[in-house]
Design a protein around this nucleic acid. Sequence first.
DNA 1: AAAATTAAATGATATTTATCATACTTAAAA
DNA 2: TTTTAAGTATGATAAATATCATTTAATTTT
Lengths: 228, 228
Amino acid sequence: MSKCGQCIMKRFNALKTLTHEELERFSEHKTSLLIKKGENLMTEGNSINGLYCIRDGKCKLTKLNTNGKEQIIKFIKGGDILGHRSILSDEPVGLNATALEDMHVCFIPKGDILDSIRDNPQFSLNLIRNISLQLSQANTSISQMAQKPVKDRLAETLLNLEDIFGIDNEGCIDVVLTREEIANTIGTATESAIRLLSNLKKDGVIDLIGKKIKIINKNMLKNLSEGY
Amino acid sequence: MSKCGQCIMKRFNALKTLTHEELERFSEHKTSLLIKKGENLMTEGNSINGLYCIRDGKCKLTKLNTNGKEQIIKFIKGGDILGHRSILSDEPVGLNATALEDMHVCFIPKGDILDSIRDNPQFSLNLIRNISLQLSQANTSISQMAQKPVKDRLAETLLNLEDIFGIDNEGCIDVVLTREEIANTIGTATESAIRLLSNLKKDGVIDLIGKKIKIINKNMLKNLSEGY
DNA sequence: AAAATTAAATGATATTTATCATACTTAAAA
DNA sequence: TTTTAAGTATGATAAATATCATTTAATTTT
């Protein structure tokens, strides 16, 4: 099994401040997982006894509302970590993590993480910063969901998706989502999301190539996301 | 000036794990502030160099949206602390804290807080838990804003407000908010909020006594908040 | 206390968004 | 390949919500 010390992912996340010794310890205890598309890496309400480090693949973090609808809260990709909030606060997981494509994930047991939190203040601080940033983004999200019309939220979401996942060879946003998933991200009916996407295409702001979306006029999208 | 060791507020928040010595140090360096109704304790984008501990009074945490509308993200009362996220992540404040009534607040300089974070893992952990809980609540909020109709969100908000602020002698929710502030909490137009409140009153679910709101049928409100 | 301002309430109307129905397309299964 | 199912698209309509206008009530200022 490959070593944590050689994994390039450690450069992208809170693990980058770990010492050689800590990474060795992680390597010895970690397990590697293959999560197939559609499977859950974490499930809302379950407890968790370790940290997930995403090597590659993409997943969505969702929450099931009391009315039975799924809300997508956040997207996760290679280099991200999952489960640290639950470990730190010693609480059950709050969100479902469902693979959007096959994922390779490493699982590092809670004990090793807690040891590093105790021994390595910088690691601890990085985890806190990660959660703080998430809180800050969540607050922005609340404000936008509450105040902005669906069209603006769609524009915002498309820009976000390109930011997170980048673009492929054809210039399309490099993630495959169903229209329903897009609708569940912006909080609207699937038909409404489809209609608004069609309008954006008709206006030449985006292009739709199968499920893939290509942003043509980023400035226009930005304006739309701000209500112009 | 009164001492932190004798302040009853220390029992209600993350400060409860501090040692006698730490509280002494806080006492020596802290300053007391009176924030008048309508004034800002913190302002979005500003940096902050300490922790605020609310002795009494209430405030709203708000965010100004790109479309100029104010979104209320959270309510704060005596016993709560503010500014720890900013201290921990070393980032500017993300929200405005505006007094809903006169407030008495203690300000503890950043240096003392960072000392305690270093020396007292339990204190550090409590701060992390506090932020984690906020993140969890924020995610719930995103989901509700995105998926639930305004009527459900209003019902939910009224229950929340009673939970947070309790009730006064007359059984009313013990906080005074304008209709506009209620609208900015649930993310709707002021007129819509007023109309829905009137409907709830007509249906005997709540009573409106001036600006004060009294919940009459809590069960009914709970059902409404879940879409029934 | 009177005047002026601000907040609350309500009707009329326009806009946004959801729902239902149906056709078409793509992907998956037999 | 044929069949079946799932996803996408679009029209018609209903429901939710915002906006504008006006009145009344409460609060603040003079």
